[in-house]
Amino acid sequence: MTLKRGNGILKGSNGFANRSEKIDNQVNTRFAIASGCKIYTAVAICMLVENGKLSFDSKLKDRLDTAFPYFDNNITIHHLLTHTSGVYDYFNEELMSDFELLWKSHPMYHVRSPKDFLPMFQYEKMQASINSHFEYNNTGYILLGLIIEHVAKCDFAAFVEENIFRKAGMMDSGYFEADRLPERTALGYIEDPKGSWKTNIYSLPAKGTPDGGAYTTVEDRSKFWEALMGNQLLSKEMTQMLLKPRVAVAAEDDIYYGYGGYMELNADKEVVKYIQMGYDPGANFREVYYPDTGTVIIVCSNEEEGAYELLKEIESIL
């Protein structure tokens, strides 16, 4: 956990990075942050737009050589970024709760790049009409990663590591492979109904991809926000495009989604805070950034629960 407000930084850690060896989590431990790294994919897309290689109106069918016979031909980058494309989600969290079921026919040790997901959705029909409403969609971000690779002519993970992590000074972050984890990396743990624990090595793809799975430290994540809000990754205008409210997540509240994640708005439709989250078996991540004060609260966990509760407790104290 880390809390940064102005020049003040509060850090803390607890629990085990490795339960078998009784190795404690530290403030510099690397954690998997699941969908908390979708914002990296969005920033990478914005970089390509800024360089004139894409536009937010670019159509999926025009940016990939891969055929998707049942996808709407009018799907754009904008739709994919805002979860309004309606494409079939290979892991629909409203319909499926056990992530491990995905790997029965597609072994997780073979999934190490965006293209490895294609058999899981390429020939599926649309699950909703294009641009109808916000519906969280992992497939959309896999498609964005494929577009990045095709346009930049570069491996997705390598592009993000070079153009985002290195530029922001995030030297402890990366898309590490589960069977080649570097030092100071927390193993993810899943608790079974009897109260015992197992690692998540058979529950997730072998390597993180555009919809989730990068590793980072709380300090590196703080550096990311400093670089992003300091316009070191994108121009001021493009950073504003990334963080602008785009679609309402639910009609009854003030939560919106932009190109780079969730945000809470006040009655005047101004952003109160930006919200990032990630959930995987053995990984739990929550983060908020308050633009008015520059306060960022980051909570990483290598268990399935706890990050949200700790973040809310910190917010209530503040």
Rank of each mutant, 00 (worst) to 15 (best):
A32D: 05
V111K: 10
V218F: 06
G261F: 13
G52H: 02
K167R: 12
Y274C: 08
L60R: 02
E304F: 05
H133S: 13
I45M: 01
A152R: 06
V111W: 11
L243D: 06
M120Q: 12
M171V: 07
K194P: 05
N7L: 12
Y175P: 01
Q127S: 13
R166T: 08
T82W: 07
F68V: 01
P281M: 05
Y274R: 03
Q127M: 14
F56D: 03
S58G: 00
F165H: 08
K104C: 11
N284Q: 09
N14M: 09
F99A: 12
F71P: 00
A44S: 09
M277T: 15
G145N: 01
D98N: 14
G86S: 07
I75H: 07
M229D: 03
A307H: 02
Y308M: 12
T29H: 02
M170P: 00
K223Q: 11
M108A: 10
V247K: 10
K236W: 05
T217Y: 05
H78A: 15
L187E: 00
N266C: 09
K236N: 08
G282S: 04
Y136N: 07
C37T: 05
L233A: 07
P245D: 08
H78Y: 15
Y109A: 10
L102W: 09
H83K: 04
K207I: 11
E191I: 07
N284V: 12
Y274N: 07
T66E: 10
Y189V: 00
T239E: 15
S235Y: 12
A34D: 00
L10C: 08
E270T: 13
N302S: 06
S129H: 15
N284S: 14
C300H: 15
T76E: 04
F91T: 08
Y256M: 13
F156R: 09
I33T: 00
A248G: 10
I142C: 06
F71W: 07
D89H: 04
E304S: 14
L187H: 03
F99D: 11
